[in-house]
Design a protein around this nucleic acid. Structure first.
Length: 772
DNA sequence: CAGTGAGCGAGCTTCCGCTTGACTT
């Protein structure tokens, strides 16, 4: 039995550290927090000075029992949880729950996982810092009070099972505010003039170049006048400016930047990035993936330098330490980097390989030299107008870090390809080729993606690396927002072309408003958001977290007592809660749209128990109103009378097939064709229930029948061997059974299936068991 | 699997941050 027991937060970390410490030390993990506020009620005794009521959650009981046993056998217990608020609290909870002696239990911290850092930490143990622990308790209690007092208000005033909290409610607000900016946006247009020019330079070479006019023309008339001026004009190279520039690499990844780049470069969702990164971490290939620090250990800096020098030469190496500047950063870990820089690739799944390579490139690039560029701007003057054209080009003189990494950006306004410009001389005459003026529309601010929302939250200091992915998932599972695509709409643009002394007019078209995998606020999210802002503006303020963080810092430094801080928050807060409960009406987002011209009945929209609906007619003892669901892409706030009325056009009958009627409608699972009592889903983005023809509907039915045939591998009466999403399985009596490894599903006999059902094939799931 | 849309009332829902699996039809 080892004399020393070291407790860390993560099992993967425990494994690494054990190697450094030798056999007198046994290193185990607490798997994060081991104790929390009770689950089923407030868990804070408000009357007793906000005393927290803690318990060990069910799924941590075994961890605690194991730790208690090990601690009892050890001579000295060392607690090496992270050096931040949460880590300090974990240490304190461990001492309390394991019944350790606070005097003799040694609290240690290390900033990097190296033998030196760990040895140094062991040489300078301290005791638990109660101020820091109290800052964590204040954070925990405040979040519980806000969440568990606000949510019930929503259950009464909006809908059951909704939730509100310091973090999630502000995340939803960001999306709702942005959506309203988009709703209120009106596109403006202006004409952008570009032209191609040719000439002969002093070396006698023919050169061609494209240039753009920095001045935009707001009307077609102005653009036309300008093109006419161009026609009368002579063009001369007025000026050539060559400017040297540098570009520097981005810092190595934090959780937030990793999520952003993995989304942009690899198309990973935030959750997917974290789960792939977790695998790499557990396999020892990368450092910890939940971090807000851009710091690299001195060991990392040294090995990166070696790798860069051998691979690319000393000129490409430049050792840098990046300062973390995100708000509220706690920096308990290093930046995310490869454990061993000399491994450019790792074995594993495709996604693991891709994410690893991205991490490797980013970390290595961060230790590489700046790129040196040369930017050239040529201005072309006109004899008939004071306006000029400019051509810009950029050449990379030394690639530096660009050799292996270029950061991506969210905006799709992306700068134009910067080409290399041909050699021209000042005063050189240019002959215009074609000059065009194209109408360009301004675009509304972009909707958030999962990754850009994380970026924004981090900027505001809201949420932590361990919670970004869960936040995104919570606001979606509550129905506040949803990740969707939009096909966009065709829009035409006017183009004027000056060619051979004549201006001609044509129309071009572009797709505007196309969206792919963006976060859209839903009606319920907007209703909840508006209600919360009206009643709890302080908590919904974008700066609320930053302000309470300041107070938590004061608690951590001993300037403020935690219960005083909580008490001064809770008093006014609780009063507002009670007032809203007493005075506020139920929120349904109801809007009157007008009257139906056909029936003269009033048309309105509102949030019903089952989602947003349009209602035709008032409810009265002798009139039952008609209802129709809004479509996914419609909002209570913006739907028009015509759009609402057309929702009553479904379901509609479109013809007959095999002597049965076909009707189309939109159901719980989207648009469908119903035929002979069976439902066939319409293809997303292909078929529209309002316009689909009988011919196409018959195709849909036949396609589905074909698919069903492939689904059935074998059938023995009530026992079926089927192909499912997770591979072949056996279905019997509404229950599914796993097929043991090594058997060929196509060759299973009835007897073999029977045997699997009876013994080995433990039921994997049954349809009736779906949770409510 | 492709409905429902009123109202009653019991009993339930809910927060944020720290960590991994279990399990998927």
């Amino acid at each position: 039995m080892a004399e020393n027991l070291v407790i860390v937060e993560s099992p993967a970390k425990a494994k690494t550290i054990e190697k450094f410490l030798g056999k007198d030390f046994s290193v185990v993990s607490s798997f994060g927090h081991i104790r929390d506020l009770v689950k089923n009620n407030l868990g804070v005794e408000v009357e007793k000075g906000f005393a927290p009521v803690y318990e060990v959650p069910e799924d941590k009981k075994k961890v605690v029992a194991d730790l208690r046993k090990l601690a009892g056998q050890a001579k000295t217990v060392w607690i090496a949880s992270d050096e931040d608020r949460e880590g300090e609290a974990i240490a304190w909870h461990l001492i309390a729950v394991l019944g350790l002696d606070p005097e003799t239990t040694r609290r240690i911290v290390f900033h990097e996982i190296t033998k030196e850092a760990i040895t140094r930490a062991v040489e300078s143990p301290r005791q638990v810092d109660m101020n820091l622990v109290n800052a964590q308790q204040a954070r925990r209690i405040l979040d519980r009070l806000v969440g568990f007092e606000l949510s019930p208000v929503l259950w009464k005033k909006v809908q059951p099972s909704l939730s509100a909290g310091r973090v999630q409610s502000v995340a939803v607000r960001l999306l709702v505010d942005r959506e309203r900016e988009i709703i209120n946006f009106t596109a403006d247009s202006a004409f952008r003039v570009t032209g191609s020019f040719s000439g002969k330079n002093s070396e006698g070479t023919d050169v061609q170049l494209k240039a753009e006019c920095p001045k935009k023309f707001s009307t077609e008339e102005e653009a036309r006048l300008f093109l006419e001026k161009c026609d009368e004009s002579e063009f001369t190279v007025d000026n050539i400016v060559v400017k040297p520039g540098t570009r520097s690499p981005a810092p190595p990844f934090t959780t937030s930047t990793l999520q952003q780049e993995a989304y942009r470069k690899l198309g990973f969702s935030v959750a997917q990035t974290m789960s792939v990164a977790q695998k790499l971490y557990e396999a020892g290939k990368i450092t910890y993936m939940r971090t807000d620090s851009t710091n690299l250990s001195s060991l990392a800096l040294n090995t990166a330098r070696e790798v860069i020098t051998t691979e690319y030469g000393a000129g490409y190496s430049r050792t840098r330490q990046f300062k973390t500047h995100s708000r509220g950063a706690q920096e308990a870990h290093e930046a995310i980097r490869p454990t061993y820089f000399d491994r450019k690739e790792v074995p594993g799944s495709n996604n693991e390989k891709k994410l690893y390579e991205l991490i490797w490139r980013r970390a290595i690039a961060s230790q590489m030299a700046d790129a040196r560029t040369e930017k050239t701007t040529i201005s072309i003057g006109m004899s008939a107008s004071p306006v000029s054209f400019t051509a810009t080009g950029e050449v990379i003189l030394f690639d530096g870090f660009l050799k292996i990494y270029t950061e991506s950006y969210d905006s799709n306004t992306g700068e134009d390809e910067k080409a290399i410009l041909p050699r021209v001389d000042r005063g050189m005459k240019l002959t215009p080729g074609t000059i065009t003026a194209l109408q360009r529309f301004t675009t509304p601010p972009p909707r958030y993606t999962e990754a850009s929302l994380v970026k924004k939250l981090e900027e505001l200091g809201i949420g932590r690396p361990s919670t970004y992915a869960p936040i995104i998932s919570t606001i979606q599972s509550r129905g506040y927002v949803s990740r969707e695509d939009r096909p966009g709409e065709k829009r035409s643009m006017i183009q004027l072309t000056l060619s051979k002394g004549k201006v001609s007019r044509s129309e071009k078209s572009e797709i505007a408003g196309k969206e792919k995998s963006k976060l859209f606020p839903k009606d319920i999210g907007m209703i909840v958001n508006d209600f919360l802002i009206a009643n709890f503006p302080d908590i919904l303020d974008y700066n609320f977290t930053a302000e309470v963080e300041k107070e938590f810092d004061e608690i951590a430094s001993g300037e403020t007592k935690w219960d005083k801080m909580i008490s001064s928050f809770y008093g006014p807060f609780r009063k507002t809660v009670d007032e809203s409960l007493a005075t506020r009406a139920r929120q349904t987002g109801a809007r009157q749209l007008g009257t139906d011209p056909a029936s003269g009945q009033p048309v309105s929209v509102k949030m019903s128990r089952f989602g947003p609906v349009v209602q035709l007619g008032e409810a009265s003892p002798d009139n039952k109103p008609r209802f129709a669901n809004l479509r996914r892409d419609q909002l209570l706030e913006t739907i028009t009378l015509d759009e609402a009325l057309s929702l009553f056009d479904l379901p509609r009958t479109i013809g007959t097939f095999e002597n049965d009627e076909m009707t189309v409608g939109v159901g719980k699972y989207g648009p469908y064709v119903r035929h002979a009592g069976k439902f066939y889903s319409l293809r997303k983005g292909v078929d529209d229930p309002y316009t689909i023809t009988a011919e196409r509907a018959i195709e849909v039915i036949k396609e589905k029948r074909e698919g069903e045939k492939q689904k059935v591998i074998n059938e023995f009466g009530d026992i079926k061997v089927l192909n499912g999403r997770y591979g072949p399985y056996i279905s019997h009596d509404n229950t599914n059974y796993r097929i043991p490894k090594g058997s060929d599903p196509g060759k299973l006999t009835r007897e073999e299936c029977q045997a699997i059902i009876e013994k080995g094939g433990r039921p994997k799931s049954s349809r009736g068991r779906k949770k409510k």
